[in-house]
Nucleic acid binder design. Sequence first.
RNA 1: GGCGCGAUAGCCAAGCGGUCAGGCACGGGUCUGCAAAACCUGUUAGACCGGUUCAACUCCGGUUCGCGCCUCCA
Length: 482
Amino acid sequence: MALSIYNTLTRRLEEFAPIQAPQVGLYTCGPTVYDFAHIGNFRAYIFEDLLRRTLRLQGFRVTQVMNLTDVDDKTIRGSQAAGVQLDDFTRQYKEAFFEDLRTLAIEPAEHYPAATAHIAEMIALIAKLLAKGYAYHSEDGSIYFSIAKFKPYGQLAHLDRDGLRSGARIAQDEYQKENASDFALWKAWQAADGATAWESPWGRGRPGWHIECSAMSMKYLGKSFELHTGGVDNIFPHHENEIAQSEAATGKPFVKYWLHCAHLVVDGRKMAKSAGNFFTLRDLLQRGYTGREIRYALLSVHYRQVLNFTFEALAAARGALKRLDEFAEKMQNQSPPAAAGREFQPVNAELQSKIENWVAGHVAAFTRALEDDLNTSLALAALFDLVYEGNKRLAAGALTPAQAHQALQALAQIDRVLDVQPGITPLPPQTIIDLAQARLEARRRKDFAAADRLRRQVEAQGWIIQDTAEDFKLKRSGAASS
RNA sequence: GGCGCGAUAGCCAAGCGGUCAGGCACGGGUCUGCAAAACCUGUUAGACCGGUUCAACUCCGGUUCGCGCCUCCA
C-alpha cells in the first residue's frame, strides 16, 4: 500500500507520488523568532516530524527546509523593546528553538535558512515579479503584489475575490494599494524600523513576510517540489500568497501537495496569554512533564483534528508510556543474551514463520495506519495490540526468547517514527538504591513493618519498588517526574 | 456574509453499512507477606430530528451546539 495524504489544494485524499522519486522536497514553515515557541507551534513541528519520518520509512530521500523568520514587525518591535540589535535579539530565540526541538526528539531538517540571510534572493524574486508586471510600486516606495494579475489566486484557500472583499479587514495601509487584498513584497523603511533596513533597487526597506518562503523554498528545493506544510492558519493568506508569488515568477507549478495541521486548544479553548492557558514547552518542563510525554500527547491525535491539550492528556500520555516501558523491559529480560549484541539464530523455520505472523502483523498494521494520512491514533492502537499480545504470551509462559527478541525489533521499528524510546528508564540516585536494598534485607528477615516503612520512604521520593524473584526493580512514579 | 472542520462512553480518541478499536481512569478476580507490573473480567457510547436500507455510530437531508480562517497567529 502506498502513502496517501490529504491535499489542501484539492481537498482530497491523494496517493503520494513524488515528482522524481525517491527524492522528496519538504518545506515546513518555521518559527518567527521573537519569543519562545509554544506547544501549539510544536504540534505543527511534531506533525512535520511525523511526516518526515513516515516518508523516510517509505524509502524516500527527504530534503526538508524549515525557515526561521528573523525579521518582521514582531522581531523588530521586540529587539527595540530589549534595546539590542535585531540579530542579537533573534539569536537567543533561535537557540532556544533548537534546544526545544531536541527536547521533543524532532529530527533536524536539512536546512534552516534565516530570512535575513536571503535578502538578495528575495530582491531578485521581487525584481522578476516587477519585470513580469505582477507587482507595482506604491507612493511610499513599497512594492505590492497585484492579485488581480494572477488569475488562479484563491485556489488553495478556495476563496474568490468577492469573498475576500466582503469580509476583509481594512488594512491600515490600504490607501497605498490598488486592491485591499494585494500584499507587500517589499516594505519601504519607516521610522519604526529603526536600524533594521536593507538596500534594494527601490530604496531602503525590508521584505514582506510571504516572499521569504517563496525565495528560500525555491532556492533549496527548486521551482517545483513535493510538499509544503504548516498550520491551518497559514492556508490564507500566507500559503495562498506564496503560490501567487512563486508561480507568477516561474510560470511553473509551485508545490504538489499542501498539508496543514489543525490547531491545538487548551481545555477546549483557544490558547491565549490573556486566557491564562498559554504554555511554552519550557512551562511544561517546569511543571514536571518530560519531552517524550509531551511528544506522545501531541502525536496521539490525528493531525487534522483539533487537539485538546490538557494536563489530563499529559497524565494519560505518561501512563501509556509507562505501559510501553514495562513491555520493552520485559521483552529485554526475556530475550536471549546473545540478542543484545548480534543477530540470534531462530530455532527453526516453522517457529520463525509463526513469530513473524504475530509480530510482523502488528508492525504492518502500524505502517498501514501511517500510510492512511498519518493516522497516529490508529497506529498507536496497533502498537498496543502488540504490547497486549506479547504480555499475554509472556503471562501464559508461551513467549520464547526468540519471540521476545522479535517483539523488541518490532518496537524499535515502530519507534523509528514515534521516537518515544520505550524502555529507557532513568537510573535512580544512590540514596534510593540504598533504601531499596535495606528494604530487601528487612523483607528477607520477614520484618515486614520495616520493609513497608522503607517502601513508603522510597515512594515519597518519587520511586516505586517492584519486587522480583531475586531482588527488586526501581521505577519512577508518575507523581514526581522531572 | 464567504470558506472549512467537528459533536463517539468518566477523560482522550479511531475504524467500520451487520462482527473487539486503542490509551488513561474506575470496579471485581488471579498472582504477591503487602504492593507494583502483567493477565482474566466488568461498567459507562455514538448531540437531536427525519430519510435510504433487511440492517445506520457509519450513507443522505435538516436542526442544535462548538470551533477555525477570511491580509503578516503553527
